[in-house]
């Protein structure tokens, strides 16, 4: 399988505090990789380093075989954990604009997700509920049909129905042609069957990286694995 992303001994410190400590892993084509860990484990920073938004202090990052640059974002869709893409726009205006900003943007895919989430196209983005807004942002990413979909804590603060809908949308996207997914979360319950591989971070370091099936066989479930490794 083609390697899309490779991190070798990547490290990052903020104000003298080590946030990411010598982490190495790869993301291969067609794989969904979960980045698990408690709050403050360095997941968000690691994702931003992986897509080239933040510079690593040490180590090497290779995205599509080269150094990440603005061109990478033609094939990578990154969904940050906070902030609005289009705070002051209506949903329909935002979709129209996204079609001009992102190459390969398919408004039909976005509309399907929005209809499913009962999001009116006339509504303003900043007036959507938290769950609707999260699904709207996910729709923007999925409609780009990216080679790599990078999601940073996409379920944080959402109710159970919204979380399930988001998971279904991601699964649908994987089946429908998004090639690889790298997703951070600390909410293990919702992603039990989503990942092919799991990476567990703790205090900025890599605690574990293995096939999800292997981990399920060894611990019974990802939730159990998470609890045992974190306690251990």
């Amino acid at each position: 399988m083609t390697e899309l992303l490779r991190l070798d001994e990547v490290g990052k410190s903020f104000r003298g505090r080590k946030v990411v400590d010598g982490i190495s892993f790869t993301l291969r084509q067609g794989r969904a990789v979960g980045l698990l860990g408690p709050n403050g484990a360095g997941k968000s920073t690691l994702l931003k380093i992986a897509v080239g938004l933040i510079a690593a202090d040490s180590g090497k990052v290779q995205l599509f075989g080269g150094t990440p640059s603005w061109r990478s974002f033609e094939r990578v869709a990154f969904l940050p954990d906070r902030g609005h893409f289009t705070r002051g726009m209506s949903v329909s205006e935002a979709l129209q604009l996204a079609g001009r900003l992102y190459p390969g943007f398919n408004p039909g895919t976005a509309r399907e997700i929005l209809e499913d989430a009962r999001i009116s196209r006339g509504a303003y983005v900043n007036e959507l509920s938290k769950g609707q807004e999260a699904r709207f942002h996910l729709a923007l990413c999925l409609a780009r049909r990216p080679a790599v979909l990078v999601l940073d804590e996409p379920f944080a603060g959402l109710d159970i129905l919204s979380r399930e809908a988001m998971v279904e949308a991601v699964i649908g996207a994987i089946a429908g042609g998004v090639q690889s997914v790298l997703m951070s979360t600390h909410d293990v319950d919702d992603v039990e069957g989503l990942f092919d591989e799991v990476i567990l971070l703790r205090d900025g370091g890599l605690s574990l990286w293995d096939e999800a099936e292997t981990l399920r066989a060894r611990y019974g479930s990802l939730r159990q694995m998470y609890k045992e490794v974190m306690r251990g």
Binding site: K48, L53, F73, E74, R82, G83, F85, R87, Y102, P103
Partner: peptide, 11 residues
Amino acid sequence: EDTVWWWLSLP
């Protein structure tokens, strides 16, 4: 407003 990552991830 944490919009910086949306802004910088524009291609």
